[in-house]
């Protein structure tokens, strides 16, 4: 396919200006935040010389550290479950036909497009009804179950895209070469969709670490996650400590992006092979 043609020169300059404007818009606030997190001033937004005090505060704050550890536990467990369920469902949708497939397909899209608030309300009402019947207290389990509910869809879609790009003749070639169906999956399908699975896992992990609204609705005593904790702090006012925590969260996000880009590159390489 031939690409889109070059725009004319004045138009081109306007377009270029827009590009820089958008990137400036994206990155300037992040940069400002990072700079101020090193500022030695109680007054957020004023520069008072370089310091690492606020990061030290974060390290000393048991509440913040507890929230971080809660967040990580929830993210790890929900990611593992979502990856397993999402991957198997992607296989089912991409390689099989069965009754109710279309309904299932549509259902998988809903958690992606539904607004956070609505999903939060749904799960809040669900868990309070369930708690009335089964009598449990909210916390780790309710948060994790909720995060899985929205992560499955993301994993499934990412893995499915990868499966769709894979030649299904490869699986036939494997069984033709005496592999059982399980061996064909293990030695051919799985390694080839692995970049998709890893990409889906990173997405699920990020989404779990980022979520505020749903978590706030289904959390229980003792199970404050880092974003919920930070959100609470922000509502009380801006402090240098929040700056520091924010930057830590930012760096974590960036790390995950970097990882996903690396698997993306692996994805690109094996796509080339096909």
């Amino acid at each position: 396919m031939s690409g889109i043609t070059e725009p004319r020169s004045t138009t081109k300059r306007v377009l270029q200006a827009n590009i820089w404007l958008v990137y400036l818009f994206f990155y300037a606030p992040i940069l400002v935040l990072v700079i101020y997190s090193f500022s030695d001033s109680r007054n957020v937004g004023a520069w008072g010389g370089f310091t690492l005090d606020w990061y030290r505060d974060f390290g000393d704050s048991s509440a913040a550290k507890g929230a971080l550890s809660n967040s990580l536990k929830i993210a790890v467990v929900s990611t593992i479950v979502a990856v397993v369920l999402g991957t198997i469902s992607a296989l089912a949708l991409e390689r099989f036909t069965f009754r109710g497939k279309q309904v299932f397909d549509a259902l998988l899209y809903l958690p992606i497009i539904i607004p956070d608030v609505t999903m939060a309300v749904m799960l809040l009402l669900f868990f309070s009804e369930a708690a009335n019947i089964f009598g449990f207290s909210k916390g780790f389990a309710t948060i994790t179950l909720s995060h899985i509910a929205f992560s499955i869809s993301f994993v499934s879609i990412v893995v499915r895209a990868r499966l769709a790009g894979m030649d299904d003749k490869l699986e036939e070639a494997a069984v033709d070469l005496y592999a059982t169906k399980w061996q064909a999956f293990r030695h051919v399908t799985l390694p080839l969709i692995m970049p998709g699975i890893i990409g889906g896992a990173l997405l699920a992990f990020t989404l779990s670490l980022d979520d505020v609204v749903i978590t706030e609705f289904v959390t229980g005593p003792g199970w404050t996650t880092l974003p919920v904790y930070v959100f609470g702090l922000i509502r009380k006012g801006v402090t240098p400590l929040i700056n520091a925590i924010s930057v830590v969260m930012l760096v974590a996000s960036m790390g995950l992006v970097a990882l996903s880009l690396l698997t993306d590159r692996a994805r690109g390489e094996s796509a080339e092979i096909e």
Binding site: L33, V44, S246, S253
Partner: peptide, 14 residues
């Protein structure tokens, strides 16, 4: 991919 809350907070600071 960056945390939504943090990105909003950045504007609060600005």
């Amino acid at each position: 991919w960056t945390n939504f809350l943090v990105r909003n907070y950045a504007w609060r600071v600005i």
